[in-house]
Structure formats: structure tokens, C-alpha cells
């Protein structure tokens, strides 16, 4: 059954259909949320909130492709989450990152190679307007049209931002690697 049929059924109260949508799309939502710069420990909360909103607004979803809509909601939830997080950080001082069974942070377990970690960090340093198109284009295989739909910017802007984003990224990466070289003597 494709997304549209599942949405159709879910909208009419079939929770099994909605559960299938959750199963199918959770990995994409989690990956996208992580790539947008969220801490891995927050990903489950964000994913949960994304699907709560999807369910809440299921009836307002009409002609758009379901995945496009899902990406949009994930972007919104991430932005809201970042705002709340900032408020929380002011209140609570956190000591260190949560560690997993092997003593590494969840992020370290995913980004096992130093080169991947450096690139991930550089992407996070990009301005959001460059970061989102780059993430969608390179990691989710989205076309220019789809990126324009998800981000709500024009096709020409998508192309420009991808080009500029790549340039910024190259510079950030060169700088990071230069620093790393200096640190390692």
C-alpha cells in the first residue's frame, strides 16, 4: 500500500495504517533531524513530536506528496525544539554528554570516522538557508523541485543556495582540517 492510501485510511481512523506510516518514515525523520543539527539524544523526542503533528493535521494534508509534507513538519518541529531547548539550557546546566554502553556518545557511534565527524560539524556551522538544501540534496536525494517545495523557496534560489552552500562548506572544511593538522603537530 502506498503513502497516499495509508494516509487515506489513517485519516478515516485506521490506526494500523497510521502505524505503518510511522514504521516506514521514522528512519527518514530521524536521519533528517540529526542532519539538521539536533543532538542524537533528542532525536526520539523530535520524531515523536513530528508524528503527533502529522496525526493532528492529517486532514489538512491534501494534494502534496506525503514525504514532502513530512520534511516540512520535521523542519518546523526542529525549529520549535531549538527555541525551547535554548530556554532549557539557560535553566539547566548539563554535565557532559550521555554515554552509551561502549563509553562513546551516540554521535561518536554513528560518525565513527574522523573525516565524517568533521564534515558533519562543518555542515552544522552553515547558515540554515544553505544547510537544509545541502542535506536534502546530498543525503535524501531530493530534486531541485522537491527542495523548493519543502523549503518554500524558488527553484532559482535552491540552485543558488546549493552552489553557495557548497562553496561555504569547502571553506569551512579546509579551515577545520588546517586546524586539525596544527593540533596534531
Amino acid at each position: 500500500m502506498n503513502d497516499e492510501e495509508l494516509v487515506f485510511r489513517a485519516r478515516n481512523g485506521n490506526m494500523q495504517a497510521f502505524a505503518e506510516l510511522i514504521d516506514i518514515h521514522t528512519p527518514t525523520v530521524k536521519r533528517f533531524a540529526f542532519q539538521l543539527g539536533n543532538k542524537y539524544d533528542d532525536i526520539d523526542d523530535i520524531t515523536q513530536e513530528v508524528f503527533v503533528r502529522v496525526f493532528r493535521f492529517l486532514d489538512q494534508f491534501s494534494h502534496a506528496k506525503f514525504t514532502t509534507w513530512l520534511y516540512k513538519i520535521t523542519l518546523n518541529v526542529t525549529r520549535d525544539f531549538a527555541r525551547n531547548k535554548q530556554r532549557q539550557i539557560k535553566k539547566v546546566l548539563k554535565f557532559g554528554k550521555e554515554r552509551t554502553y561502549n563509553g562513546k556518545t551516540a554521535e561518536e557511534n554513528i560518525l565513527r570516522f574522523e573525516e565524517d565527524k568533521t564534515l558533519h560539524d562543518c555542515i552544522q556551522k552553515l547558515d540554515e538557508k544553505y544547510r537544509i538544501p545541502i542535506v536534502l540534496f546530498y543525503f535524501h536525494d531530493k530534486s531541485y523541485d522537491e527542495i523548493a517545495d519543502i523549503t518554500g523557496i524558488s527553484l532559482a534560489n535552491v540552485k543558488t543556495r546549493l552552489l553557495r552552500g557548497k562553496d561555504h562548506l569547502k571553506k569551512l572544511l579546509a579551515l577545520a582540517e588546517k586546524r586539525e593538522g596544527e593540533n596534531h603537530g
Binding site: P27, K30, R31, F34, I110, R112, E115, L119, Y138, F139
Partner: peptide, 13 residues
């Protein structure tokens, strides 16, 4: 190439 390698790491989440 580096982006591609990072993509593989992400896909292993």
C-alpha cells in the same frame, strides 16, 4: 566523495 561517505554513515543510524 566526502559527502557520500557521510551519507553512508547517516544511513547506518
Amino acid at each position: 566523495k566526502r559527502l557520500d561517505s557521510l551519507k553512508k554513515a547517516y544511513n547506518d543510524i
